[in-house]
Nucleic acid binder design. Structure first.
Lengths: 187, 187
DNA sequence: GACAATGTAAACCGATCTGTTTACCTATGG
DNA sequence: CCATAGGTAAACAGATCGGTTTACATTGTC
């Protein structure tokens, strides 16, 4: 999921670890597994990332960038109307989960590291707050009477839909969530 | 969180593992850690549970029972009005998270074992569907025009709130969720 | 008091974990 | 041609993993 030409070694390592952790979980996936059949040696990995936790933090930072690149930007580009943009976010997220029904990597990391590693837990928290904030911002642009409440409520629907879609392997729950968003926006 | 008097050895083991996995995660918590300082030997554990995964399944089954005992029953007892009962579920869940801000154990297990262990993943899926179903049932009792949609939407808010409260260590998000529930019930 | 059942404690096994080290390969540039 | 930088591959180290086994303590019952 990189963008620039000829990625650096560091970016290669992150990209490889990204999918390995996404598919296999953080604690369950060892460093050897992460780098297997990738042409990247453990020595080089530990040169750039002194510990597994450092690598996980870098992966989560990349995930944050990807969320902007592949979720927010495309969704916001689909319309100029903030209300339509909010709905488009649910559409794009659904399309992403139809391609690969994986939940939110930052939540996954938070679940595994809250109370155990602050740097990783903080990135889970930040991702949660960021999504919330973007919805609040769109609700402000839409001129809603209470953008803070409505934005947060939509954020809860969004996170709940991602979680439920993953758990039930059913991206269609985003349609259910969208119906609720319509009602909240009309209230 | 057991109920009967003089719990059996099997129940003791489950209770001990329950908290160890809840606090430490499943992959991150070893069997030795689970039973440390509990007066339960590994030999006895493996007599009742032939593998770690079997133990996790038993813990999740207990979690399902606890969800009824400590969440649904108390919430439904707070009122006879189905709408009030729905709101009470959000109140009770918030109170639980204020006592100990841990998310949903079944979701946590699902996150770690989807695609890796079907018995465990199925229990995560079942928990997600169960919550959904109970909200749909209450929406039916409330005589809503579209109980299936509304119930599912409320379910998404509920799961999203639990996830977000855990991630941000902020049980107060259940108040935000309740406001949305009011709107959905009035629509 | 002998017996069987049930338990604890702890040594043990092979595999795997994070992380380090050794040895070798392969470019590029003066 | 040779030095250097940056890389792979793989052995290695010590800890921990899931799981087994051995040895011993406790209990109730005939």
């Amino acid at each position: 999921m990189a963008g620039t030409a000829t990625p650096t070694k560091k970016q290669e390592i992150i990209a490889q670890a990204y999918d390995a952790f996404y598919d296999g979980g953080f604690h369950a996936t060892g460093i050897d597994t992460v780098m297997a059949n990738s042409g990247i040696s453990k020595r080089t990995l530990y040169k750039y990332f002194p510990s597994k936790e450092d690598l996980i933090e870098a992966v989560l930072d990349q995930y944050g960038e990807d969320t902007d690149t592949y979720l927010f930007k495309p969704a916001l580009a689909r319309s100029d109307d903030p209300r339509e943009q909010i709905l488009a976010l649910f559409d794009v997220r659904r399309e992403m989960m139809e391609a690969s029904c994986r939940g939110c990597l930052a939540m996954k990391a938070g679940q595994e590291y809250i109370g155990k590693h602050e740097g990783i837990a903080a990135r889970g928290r930040a991702a949660s707050e960021y999504v919330e904030g973007r919805f609040v911002e769109l609700c402000q642009k839409a001129g809603l009477v209470n953008p803070l409440d409505t934005g947060r409520q939509i954020g809860l629907l969004f996170q709940g839909a991602a979680m439920t879609a993953q758990m039930q392997q059913k991206p269609s729950v985003f349609e259910t969530a969208k119906k609720a968003v319509h009602i909240l926006l009309a209230a």
